[in-house]
Design a protein around this nucleic acid. Structure first.
Lengths: 350, 350
DNA sequence: AAGTGCTATGTAAGCGCTTACATTCTGATT
DNA sequence: AATCAGAATGTAAGCGCTTACATAGCACTT
């Protein structure tokens, strides 16, 4: 039988009806004054706005969402907020979307595919109208679920040629091919690799494959004893470099790292071990964090414009929401930043 | 006259009514099966859940919000996502809140008070039921606006004794008093200071005041030519240290930095200038970032557990939402991490 | 046998807004 | 003067859900 006794709670309790009454118009006009100002005569619009201001009224989003079937919500699925790379992507995405009145919901997967799937489910349940998700290695059916809802989405950060998904990012494999080529050109033939966990992480997998493929072109292979996989931390970089250099057999003359934190760790440990960089050993990073140009020697690394990824992803999704059928975005370029941590290969210690 | 021709859009178009029909119950029971399972007989609940699964139905949040007057939305206002300190706070806040079914909306002010006010307005309009905001120096009336809506809030990151707001954070002034005391104890009497922009930033202001106050106790004052204010970057730290050391008159024997990035920059520049740390100059940071223990020499700095701030803020807000009147949270401790960048004062060059 | 207190379910009235369609009013056209 | 197009506004029917209250069913009492 419903609640009966209306009893508005004194607080934030103005409704469109109250504004309409105060302005001497109907609720339809109130709504139009806010959502389609051009359809309301200027002086009436003025009156409505004044009445709304007086009552401190703003359209209640739940009511609006229900009636208009629009939520003005978008979602961003990222591995973690604790990584600059994703934080700045999301930041840019949000800035761009909020300028169009779209609020961004953030979901963190903590690099776990199940959590990712849950977050997406939650966002969908919340009614997001567009979704940006980092990477494309997710639980099977994830993208289908999204598409089945008719929600436009875009993969961010990585751009794999041949991927069935629209994506805004760069080609991770190509980026590492570029690094490999650079080192090969310097004469290196013995390589080490320190990288992040590759499970459920297509970016890391692509990088490793890009590296291996390019080395293979010159008949060079990575030796297992020169490869380390672990947390993307300075500490892991240090410990890995030490154990690689202590491994039996010939030492690598170049160590490729999955990101700058690992590379900085490697650099620090090399110094601690009395290994000269780049004379005895070349080291490369990835990301070009602020610290990379301040290390001694400064770090050769790849730069990617993460804010631009976020922004382009936002633009793409916005275009989809506007009903345009935008072309899949082109890949972004990553750029090799040559600094002093790489140099001509030392005579191999083999 | 309303839309008339119902015409459900094939897609995600199941309603509670459809589920009810399929399960052979009323919509009330469907609702209860989801929101108050204990009030529904187990076998009926089972049937409802199965029917919902079959139709791929989930409660539509706008309808739910409208009817229940609950949005299960909370907001977090931070300066920027581009800073680990805030990113991890938000991350922890979100993890905790989402475990209770609350979705977090993030607003970035970019250190601008007007943007902050706008973001808060937007979040309030979106119907957030609780708010965590970094710092307390905001546009006058901001907190009143929030409180007027009956929305519980908590100030994060800083905890100022005597503040009228509930806050989860540490006492920035006390933290810098601690640093000052440490350096005074080491015999320093000539200080430099490199800090972030202080406008609209109560944390930075409190730190500076804590430092000045403690120095004053020993009759020590900061000389204007030894103070620099600018972006919290490694580069600004470098350039500031150089210009401080080049300033006419006696050089400081200790330089206090507003955060680790500035301190790392100062450390790098000291090395470039041939100034020995800590023999000739002591340097301190703030935050204890991962890099701080890897610098040469490792950096003396203050550690704050940002994840814990986020988590406690979440717990406090959750308690408010549960209708409990939780006591204002106690301040957190920041901890001085003594490393090798600080040492006994050199004989003053005065 | 009738009454009592439970608990599990159903009924139906909104929540606050948008929007299709109806209505009114204007000024231009015939 | 009559007609009509077009613009501005009003009317009122939902959007999909929750929940106060009513009701039915059941196990005990007395």
């Amino acid at each position: 039988m419903g609640r009966g006794g209306r009893e508005r709670n004194g607080q934030a309790g103005a409704r469109a009806l109250d504004v309409a009454a105060l302005a001497g118009v109907s609720t339809a006009t109130v709504s139009r004054a806010f959502n389609a100002p051009e359809k309301v005569a200027p002086e009436i619009r003025e009156k409505v706005l004044k009445a709304a201001a007086e009552l401190g009224w703003m359209p209640h989003p739940a009511g609006a969402a229900l009636a208009s079937r629009r939520t003005w919500l978008a979602g961003a699925l990222i591995p973690t907020l604790d990584n600059d790379v994703f934080a700045s992507q999301v930041g840019a995405l949000q800035t761009r979307l909020s300028a169009e009145g779209v609020t961004v919901l953030i979901g963190c997967s903590n690099y776990d595919a199940d959590q990712a799937a849950n977050q997406v489910r939650t966002m969908l349940a919340r009614g997001v109208e567009a979704l940006a998700v980092v990477g494309e290695s997710h639980r099977p059916g994830l993208f289908e679920t999204i598409a089945a809802r008719g929600v436009p989405y875009v993969v961010t950060y990585s751009h794999r040629p041949g991927s069935p998904h629209p994506s805004v990012g760069f080609d991770n494999a190509a980026a590492f091919r570029r690094i490999a080529r650079h080192l090969l050109d310097l004469g290196h033939r013995d390589f080490g690799l320190i990288h992040q966990p590759s499970i459920d992480n297509d970016r890391v997998v692509a990088r490793i494959e890009g590296l291996r493929a390019t080395l293979a072109e010159e008949g060079v292979a990575l030796r297992p004893q020169h490869v380390r996989e672990g947390p993307a931390s300075i500490a892991f970089g240090r410990q890995s470099l030490r154990s690689i250099m202590e491994a039996p057999g010939p030492r690598p003359t170049a160590v490729v790292c999955g990101n700058d934190a690992l590379a900085i760790g490697a650099l620090i440990e090399a110094r601690a071990l009395g290994i000269r960089v780049p004379e005895d050993l070349s080291i490369t990073g990835f990301d070009d964090v602020a610290m990379a140009e301040q290390t001694d020697p400064p770090l050769t690394t790849m730069r990617v414009d993460n804010a631009e990824i976020g922004q382009r992803a936002a633009d793409y999704l916005l275009a989809c929401l506007a009903g345009r059928q935008p072309p899949p975005p082109p890949p972004l370029e990553s750029r090799l930043i040559l600094r002093a941590s790489t140099g001509a290969a030392a005579r191999s210690a083999a």
